[in-house]
Design a protein around this nucleic acid. Sequence first.
DNA 1: ATGGAAGAATCAAACGTTTTCATTTACTTT
DNA 2: AAAGTAAATGAAAACGTTTGATTCTTCCAT
Lengths: 337, 337
Amino acid sequence: MSRVLNNTAPVKKSTRDRITELINKYQFQPNALARSLFKKETGMIGVILPDITNPFFPEVLSGLDQEARNKGYTFFLCDTVSTNTNGDSGEQYVRESEYLNILVEKQVDGIIMLGGRINLAKPSAELVNEVVEVCKRVPVLLINGNLPGEGMNRVYADEKVGAELATQHLIDLGHRDIAFVGGYRHMSNTLQRIQSFVKTMEKNGLKVRKEWMLDGGFSVESGKAFLNILLGLPERPTAVFCANDLVAIGVMKAANKAGLRVPHDLSLVGFDDIPYASNSIPELTTVSLKCYDVGRNAADLLHQMITKNKVSRNTKVRPELIVRESTAPPGGKGLKA
Amino acid sequence: MSRVLNNTAPVKKSTRDRITELINKYQFQPNALARSLFKKETGMIGVILPDITNPFFPEVLSGLDQEARNKGYTFFLCDTVSTNTNGDSGEQYVRESEYLNILVEKQVDGIIMLGGRINLAKPSAELVNEVVEVCKRVPVLLINGNLPGEGMNRVYADEKVGAELATQHLIDLGHRDIAFVGGYRHMSNTLQRIQSFVKTMEKNGLKVRKEWMLDGGFSVESGKAFLNILLGLPERPTAVFCANDLVAIGVMKAANKAGLRVPHDLSLVGFDDIPYASNSIPELTTVSLKCYDVGRNAADLLHQMITKNKVSRNTKVRPELIVRESTAPPGGKGLKA
DNA sequence: ATGGAAGAATCAAACGTTTTCATTTACTTT
DNA sequence: AAAGTAAATGAAAACGTTTGATTCTTCCAT
């Protein structure tokens, strides 16, 4: 029966017909569990991410899916968000560990980790150990994150050039007083963006002001808060570079409420290029992390790791500046009252 | 060994210790495939949806996950979108069938269908047949969709009261000239919204204008197109009810470009309450479909279907009007030039 | 016609669990 | 102390597939 389904051996036409007839008659469908048990491959890939509700992730998921689908993979979705948001991300982290275990128990062919603890600037030794341990059993691929030491496989967007692109764009427009707001200093991606930001500023002979460097969130709400802080300062920037699009939206909303017009009074650039970015009024200038491409690359790389059992080298994808409507030369009154 | 892992039988302390030591030593992890093969349950739920990139779906996914997680389920994500968008949704439909097959082969404990063909106003007999066939093998739950005849299990938001809420809100504000734009007439959810819209209009003695009823898309782009059509008309509405938030955003952008202020010149209400809705400027008045609640309910119901093997009755969740900033009395110049 | 080879069909083992049943060991009670 | 009961352990079957080995046909060539 197996032979006729999979054409794995020659079989006389008479018997083949007999079998196929039975298959149709009983609506037979093979049991993938049993097959996987024997073949030691499941065609399943686990993807662990912090929060499916963050529009950033569906985008890369989409790329992953597109590339992996025709290779015959299906996805386990492991959302680690702690929905009963008591602000305790500890719970999220234990969930991450749990899922790691579940996935290897379910014998997935590969695991993709996306965000969460792998984004920490200083990941705990415990986590590193854990992931290394899992790596021994199943190929693991990190997207937009890193873990020190162990030569992990990763594909990621080049945060540094992304931040440089954005900063330089603002400078070329004529801005000299630029703020950076958003993110968390203890996360590696934020850190890279900040570092690249100050580097680019200094390269252009511009000063970065400590009091214009605000972090503490990736959300719209935090964006509003950041702008309000900025508004309370004696000296104010004419442009702000936001750690991601969501906080850019927040900044924009708060600016609007304060009677400031974007980009006339204040230039704004975001980061990520989530769908939001092109839907706001005015549309947001941002740097695209090419989530979709990152996803596709990841799927491809993981597939190689699974089949060739070979550690391919990491892939870095180059971000792209998307100039839309939220940036302009510093013509207006700026943030100055 | 199985006994000590699962505490399924009394075991002497000495041997228990011996076993646990070995487990730790060899980092033993059980094979979920083998277990599932024997127990005939996998703890896996398949969810089929059209496009993870549409912010509507992550929201319900999140609710699903939250409720199902602590019951020990994990999710298969089956995105049926045809990413090489040649506009051919036929491909999407065959993918839907494919996934249905894959999921039963993988022995999932249950299947959740979300959008796609189950939203068609007139589903093909072929589809109905297919789903009925699958239902014989594994519990299937439809979210926000229906299939005729066969007493399918479903949980859904009450589109009719949602549309009524929105329409009545506009009317209460004093609007008499209201347009309805967006969606597809051949989809059941659009149809219900339309029907409820005209019913509510007529109940208030208001006339609905054929030329103000536009359909043909759920996207931002289509929203822009709709408004532009409206602008070209000799007589224009003072408010428009959009089939979903995305087209409302589109309408808002097009209005903005045409120099119209929302809500001063034009009132706008959306549908769905996706995260976008509260991030736009002005924030969008909309009706919340309670995606998250729908998701939670679905997870709960499916769990009952799986364990109790009982066909629970359908669940309907009541939408809620969220009044924000995009609606106001028809004070402005309206759309009239 | 017999031997052999190639083709077709059938058998059996293996994948890693769980559970039942039987067997052995330990404990309690009269 | 013996018997009976309870606890602990061991062995084996089953879940549904795949594949390598084995047997059985069939046919061709010597």
